[in-house]
Write a protein that binds this DNA or RNA. Structure first.
Lengths: 152, 152
DNA sequence: TAAGTAAATGCAACAATGTTGCGTTTAAGA
DNA sequence: TCTTAAACGCAACATTGTTGCATTTACTTA
């Protein structure tokens, strides 16, 4: 299904700005910060971008996550989220070196038991370390080749 | 060991403000936001509080965590952290109702395997739901008694 | 216990991130 | 193509955190 239709299906108008943002997010498994998107779409108004991300989140198109620095990031919802209540039951990986954040769709958040009177509703799992690209670069210590660009 | 000595042992001067902050943090297993501490110590300068928390973090006295809203919180390091590198291998619980955040010292972060070329350095586990107090209040629906104040 | 000094504080100013109000423009259905 | 609610662009504001600098204070040592 095309991008325009996916946006419209959520009751949102498929404006050019929204198509750009949604397109970028769907094309990768990355969680983007506002700053990253702003740098990508330099003509886009700052406030408009904030509102697009908020609207997408409310519509269940993207989910909001926080990286190891506490910065807000947005990533596409691959498993359709029912409205504002995001399942978001997968794990995120944050690279300490390049700062990029990956959605590991395939990895579910683990089960965990906690003591005390806590009623558990869900959990966030954020793994950090080195992503493949950075990892590889630091080991080999010479410029990586073009194929590495395809990893993400 | 007393608070003054613990602060001095990290090479920091045990000023009144630092004693107040460190005292509050040690007395509970809670992770405090800057705003919560500011409300607690109304005469304390905003910037001073920021610097105290930063100094404590650098010294390994407290660790920084982020709650489900992405807000920064600080909690005491119960297992002595070597300088800036915090072990912080325990789980945190964030109450959706009262917003408070608890350090579950007894619960270690689970083991997890992830695919791809990621090199894992560590992980953050944040569980959310209802804390005992809020949980209990919503069930009973009448004012809780004084003993509930002791739960934390 | 007084003096010297590096560290900590308080204040003002600034920076980054996010929100709100409002007038203008535009997507999409009639 | 017309209409209109939704989205946008801009300015202003709010919150959170940082930096520079002059003043004060905790701790050392004499």
């Amino acid at each position: 299904m095309d991008i325009v239709q996916q946006i419209r299906d959520k009751g949102l108008k498929a404006t050019p700005a929204r198509q750009l943002v949604y397109g970028e997010l769907t094309r990768s498994h990355m969680a983007f910060s506002h700053a990253e998107l702003e740098a990508l779409f330099i003509d886009m108004d700052r406030v408009t971008l904030y509102r697009i991300l908020k609207d997408f989140e409310d519509a269940g198109l993207v989910h909001k996550v926080f990286d190891t620095q506490g910065s807000t990031r947005f990533a596409i919802c691959h498993h359709t989220c029912p409205g504002k209540h995001h399942a978001e039951n997968h794990v995120h990986f944050n690279c300490n070196d390049c700062g990029k954040m990956f959605c590991l769709q395939a990895v579910q958040t683990p089960e965990i038991n906690i003591p005390g009177g806590f009623k558990v509703a869900g959990m966030h799992t954020l793994i950090y370390g080195s992503c493949e690209k950075c990892n590889h670069q630091s080991e080999t210590n010479f410029p990586v080749n073009k194929t590495d660009e395809l990893i993400e």
